[in-house]
Design a protein around this nucleic acid. Structure first.
Length: 271
DNA sequence: CTTCGATCCTGAAGGC
DNA sequence: TGCCTTCAGGATCGAA
C-alpha cells in the first residue's frame, strides 16, 4: 500500500498532530501477531513517555521516545491515525495520550510492523541495516546507480523497487517513474545508459516530490493520519491505466505481470 | 553472490 | 443469493 510519499505524508501528519508535551497515559495491544509479534513489553516501555519526534527512513516510521525508538512499517494495508469515534475491526494497537487523544494502528492484512529498540540500535536493526540510499538525497546519483547496475540482468523496474538499492519506491511509483523517464520497465538493468539513468533520477525526484505535495495516492485503503485520502491518483500516467489512452501520445497503455506485480507502460513513449 | 517464487493475511470485486 | 478465483501501495525466506 504505502510507498515513500504516503509514509512521508503520515510522518509529517503525525509530527504535527502529536502534542509536544503529551505523555502516553497507556498503551493497549489488541492483537500482537503481526508479521513480527508486537513485543508484549511495549505498553510498559511507553508508559509515561513522550513521543519526541517522528521520522521516516525508507518506508519505515520511527517514533523517538527517551532512549528508545518505535520502528513501524505499514505493510500493504497499515495506517496510523487518531481515532475519532469508534474502535474499528483490525485496530491492533492504541496509544492513549494524557489529553485523551488516541493514536491507532490499523492493519487488516497484518503485514505491518511495530517493534521497539534502543535508539542507538536503530541502524543496526535487521529491518533497517540493509536499506539502500534515500531517493531524495544526494547519494542517489548516476555514479551510484551505474555501479549498482553493473552486471544486473533483472528488469529495471525490479531494480528500482529493490530496497537494498534505493528505498521508498514501490509498485505504483516504479511504473510512474519509468513512464516519465521514457524507459520501459522490462529493460535489463545493465543495459540502461548513463543518459537514461539521469532521466530516471530526475523523474524519481519529480514524481516523489509531486506525490508528497499531493499527500500520496489513494487507490483503496491508504489514508493520511487525519483520515483524509491522498490526491496523486489523478496524476498517474501509467499505473492502473491498462487499456486506456496514454495522456501524452494517445497510444494504449500496456500491462504485464512482472514478478507477481502489475506493471504498466506506454510502448510509444518508453523505449 | 543473484534471482525467482512461494508465502504471510484479509477483503473487495468480478465471473458463473 | 452464494461460491470461487484473482488481485491488492510489501518484504522475507528458502531454493536453485
Amino acid at each position: 500500500m504505502p510507498e515513500l510519499p504516503e509514509v512521508e505524508t503520515v510522518c509529517q501528519g503525525l509530527r504535527d498532530a502529536i502534542p509536544a508535551n503529551n505523555k502516553i497515559a497507556f498503551v493497549q495491544l489488541k492483537r500482537r501477531d503481526l508479521r513480527v509479534p508486537i513485543q508484549k513489553e511495549l505498553p510498559q516501555w511507553l508508559l509515561g513517555q513522550t513521543i519526541r519526534n517522528v521520522r521516516r527512513r525508507a518506508k519505515y516510521l520511527l517514533f523517538d521516545i527517551a532512549e528508545k525508538t518505535i520502528i513501524s512499517h505499514l505493510g500493504m494495508s497499515g495506517s496510523w491515525r487518531f481515532l475519532d469515534n469508534d474502535h474499528r475491526k483490525h485496530d491492533h494497537c492504541y496509544i492513549h495520550f494524557s489529553d485523551g487523544k488516541v493514536l491507532a494502528f490499523h492493519d487488516p492484512r497484518r503485514f505491518g510492523l511495530i517493534t521497539c529498540v534502543p535508539t542507538s540500535d536503530v541502524n543496526k536493526n535487521k529491518f533497517i541495516k540493509h536499506l539502500g540510499v534515500e531517493p531524495l538525497e544526494q547519494d542517489f546519483n548516476v555514479n551510484y546507480l551505474l555501479q549498482k547496475a553493473k552486471g544486473k540482468i533483472v528488469p529495471v523496474k525490479n531494480f528500482l523497487m529493490d530496497q537494498k538499492i534505493v528505498v521508498g519506491i514501490g509498485n505504483i511509483y516504479a511504473s510512474e517513474i519509468l513512464f516519465h523517464a521514457g524507459v520501459r520497465p522490462l529493460r535489463k538493468t545493465k543495459s540502461i545508459k548513463q543518459g537514461e539513468w539521469i532521466k530516471i533520477i530526475s523523474a524519481t525526484v519529480q514524481v516523489l516530490n509531486k506525490a508528497i505535495q499531493r499527500k500520496g495516492t489513494t487507490l483503496r485503503d491508504y489514508e493520511q493520519s487525519s483520515g483524509e485520502s491522498g490526491h496523486f491518483q489523478s496524476e498517474l500516467f501509467a499505473y492502473g491505466r491498462d487499456g486506456e489512452r496514454c495522456k501524452t501520445c494517445h497510444n494504449k497503455i500496456q500491462s504485464k505481470m512482472l514478478s507477481g506485480r502489475s506493471t504498466y507502460w506506454c510502448s510509444q513513449c518508453q523505449k
